[in-house]
Design a protein around this nucleic acid. Structure first.
Lengths: 331, 331
DNA sequence: GTGAAAGCGCTAACAC
DNA sequence: GTGTTAGCGCTTTCAC
């Protein structure tokens, strides 16, 4: 039933009209007689005709499809992003192709294949890529929008929150709550959702601005939820007697919280814990965190991209999205 | 740079060969002289030629794309499913189109458009649809795999766990732990991830099999995380003095847990709480739950579908996936 | 081994 | 208003 489907010519023959007229009808062009419209309608129903998308795409050069490149769909950040991009896409009559690149060798070249082969009209990328520099020229008017500030090289248009300032705000919040020895956790460079480089700089900047606060950094592995123990092991080893942890992720904060509870450490009196993102988990556990409106970011990114593809030549600019600190019980 | 790309004819002209030969080379056919291969390779590199996907698709009738229809990408169940389907798709050289239908009018007809317009080769659907019955004939050899047992009408091939038996097992577990008054929560029929109908029957079945246990059901709204209060309100109103709650979702269980904690109710001594799915949340909060290997389900579903599309005429059967009860602190 | 020609299903000039 | 024609870029007979 999938092969041997009716084509526009079948409709033409059936109605005694030409394919061109049928096409005009299909595309809502003017100058199709009432009479023709009716016969065509009838024939379409009768033959169960449905226009072939592939042919349309080939003809028009427009796929009405965009690719969304992420690390891992199962991660809360990315799944919200998919939800946002998907909702906006549906609204605008586009489809999204989700490309997970977790653990794979993925480079700009492969990304560009996607649009160069005309499989999609453009790309939203929310995953760190290898060096863009080698593609400098290409990228200039490439239909691409990023969702990760770390990708802000080469003037790529993007939609994101200010990771430097939000990190600074988070640290300041801990300070205000009385913390003076802040442990700043960061993930491996290859971890999903890492804005690591920017954060590391912000840690540094904070340390310089607040001389009476001590800052230490510690790298944790990717299994965020189970890292609490690891962190406390380092602590009891006497590395740095912290009274607050900046986690950079709610999962990680949750892990810390659980480990602390097991040790009878009072939260927030003895230890303040700050997450990042404001995932559902954070609310359930009462974790203070920095809310990132991920869904909205996805919607904006898609709208932005569509605009780029429809009015080419426009060099779109980056869009800053507002974040906000949410004060709960953990600080 | 996206328009005016080199075509196969450009390569032909550049090499002095014909488009046919270039095509043969591209598709790894035999009978292309070593010499021709080299010239073509060179020309491709020189002109930056990339074959146009749309044209290939039109010609071959194969998109190497499949649609994944879900309720809401942000829901943990669906995001894991995307991750699984996506990983398997990448492995098999396919792309996935994610279609969110949350809150939208979505019916089999629209779904079939997707494959009938040849936008995709097949569909994985993990979202409840309106009556399939009216499409009975079509569906027989339609390239479709479901991921929700509730869709098991009309002999649709599917990949899922046994919701009846798993519900029964969950209830039995609560019973074994000493519960005798079990409150069974279920969501609205339109909620994501609802295998409601099957569950409701299972509740009934359990009640009949265990005469000395009392069962009550209560419908909760969709905002799972915040339903704890709602449930306890009904409780204090004296409706049913339960000593255990079968939640049907980890989010919901988490909400109950929080509400119970606020009231000083001892878990599991005074109240046993059982979740479903085994989301990360469940582990963090120590919620006993029924583990559903969603990622694997996604992978299986895709493999299954590909097999259906490549060897048509095969009437694929449903695949049962193993679940397992995970005993944690909440029971 | 290679080329010429036909055609996948659709749309957009251009005629009438 | 409607038909004719000419492709979009590729693959695949069928000749040679």
């Amino acid at each position: 039933m999938v092969s041997g489907m009716a084509t526009i010519h079948d409709i033409a023959r059936h109605t005694g009209l030409s394919a061109a007229t049928v096409s005009r009808y299909l595309n809502g062009h003017p100058y199709v007689s009432k009479e023709a419209q009716l016969t065509i309608q009838l024939a379409i129903k009768e033959l169960g005709y449905v226009p072939n998308d592939s042919a349309r795409v080939l003809r028009s050069g427009q796929t009405r499809r965009i690719a969304l490149v992420i690390e891992d769909a199962a991660h809360p950040f990315y799944s919200s992003l998919i939800a946002g991009v998907g909702a906006a896409a549906a609204r605008l009559g586009h489809d999204i192709l989700v490309q997970q690149v977790r653990g794979e060798a993925w480079h700009p070249g492969r990304l560009m294949q996607l649009v160069v082969t005309r499989a999609v009209d453009g790309v939203i990328i929310a995953s760190e890529l290898s060096p863009w520099s080698e593609y400098g020229d290409w990228l200039t008017d490439f239909p691409l929008v990023t969702c990760d500030q770390a990708l802000q090289h080469a003037d790529l248009p993007g939609v994101y929150i200010d990771h430097r300032q939000s990190t600074l705000d988070g640290l300041h919040h801990l300070y205000e709550q009385g913390a003076r020895n802040i442990l700043c956790l960061h993930t491996t460079p290859t971890s999903p959702c890492s804005s690591n480089t920017i954060r590391l700089t912000a840690f540094q900047e904070f340390a310089e601005g607040y001389p009476n606060a001590a800052i230490a950094t510690q790298q944790v592995s990717d299994d965020l939820l189970h890292n609490g123990e690891e962190v406390f092991a380092a602590y009891t080893a006497g590395a740095f007697p912290f009274d607050a942890v900046f986690c950079g992720s709610d999962d990680l904060a949750a892990g810390i919280l659980m480990a602390a509870r097991k040790r009878g450490i009072a939260i927030p009196e003895q230890l303040k814990v700050l997450g990042f993102d404001d995932q559902p988990l954070a609310e359930v556990l009462g974790i203070s965190t920095i809310h990132q409106p991920v869904r909205t970011m996805g919607e904006r990114a898609l709208e932005h991209l569509i605009q780029c593809t429809t009015s080419p030549g426009t060099h779109p600019r980056s869009i800053q999205i507002a974040y906000r600190l949410i004060h709960r019980e953990s600080t």
